[in-house]
């Protein structure tokens, strides 16, 4: 069973993510957008959206630091385990709370504002609720489990396992001894990854990073292909 969840399932998720995203981009390109409801309601969106988005950006950076960067790196630059955990619990806790509070505001807004509600699809509700599950588990782990039970050292289990996925040699046995709470957080987030191409989450791949570098005015001739064809 451990082999399926930690050795096979992540690849199923990855395949769905890549294939469905490419499908959506190529076949249903006009549906690729950040479906904003700001035109219907601004006041609560301002609080909810800003808390959630900035929170999840910080949380992402935190996950890079905790899961992608090996523990040896911290040891080599002299960051002790104790110091790391203080930073991770404080930083991760704040980011997690921002995400969860932001999401709850957005969820309440979604079903209490009649204009927003009418245009919320199942995928929209699923996204917000499932994000609350994933982020709620993560925040609980960071703020409660880590401080009351044990400051769990995921950098020697979850981290190496996650990195091993990319070398196609999943060290699934590393995950079997991980506390259930952490396992659930990982699995629920993988379900979320699989949902990305089918929901509004797709807009995360469209961050317009090239914008500051491009010319302010854009000209286009009608036929892009005319020069490449005889």
């Amino acid at each position: 069973m451990g082999f399926f969840w930690w050795g096979v399932f992540p690849y199923i998720v990855g395949t769905i993510l890549v294939v469905a995203s490419v499908y959506r981009f190529v076949i249903r390109g006009t549906s690729w957008h950040a479906p904003s409801t700001e035109i219907f309601e601004k006041k609560w969106l301002r609080i909810g959206s800003l808390l959630f988005h900035w929170g999840i950006l910080f949380a992402f950076i935190g996950h890079v630091m905790g899961v992608l960067i090996p523990i040896e790196f911290y040891e080599s630059i002299g960051v002790t385990d104790h110091l790391y955990h203080i930073g991770a619990i404080a930083g991760g806790g704040i980011a997690g709370l921002m995400v969860v509070i932001g999401l709850i505001i957005l969820l309440i807004r979604k079903f209490s504002n009649p204009r927003v509600k009418v245009h919320a699809s199942f995928a929209d509700y699923f996204t917000v609720i499932w994000l609350i599950v994933v982020a709620g588990l993560g925040t609980y782990m960071t703020l409660v489990y880590n401080t009351t039970v044990v400051a769990y050292e995921y950098r020697v289990t979850i981290g190496p396992w996650f990195r091993s996925l990319f070398t196609l040699q999943p060290e699934y046995e590393l995950m079997t001894a991980v506390p259930l709470l952490f396992q659930l957080h990982v699995l629920s987030s993988f379900i979320l990854f699989a949902a990305i191409p089918f929901t509004q989450l797709i807009h995360m791949f469209s961050f317009p990073g090239r914008y500051p570098a491009r010319a302010p005015q854009q000209y286009r001739a009608r036929d892009g292909y005319k020069n490449s064809r005889p």
């Binding site: 469209s206 317009p208 090239r210 491009r214 005015q217 854009q218 000209y219 286009r220 001739a221 009608r222």
Partner: peptide, 8 residues
């Protein structure tokens, strides 16, 4: 996104 443009 550079989606708006002026036709040449």
């Amino acid at each position: 996104s550079g989606a708006l443009y002026k036709r040449d």
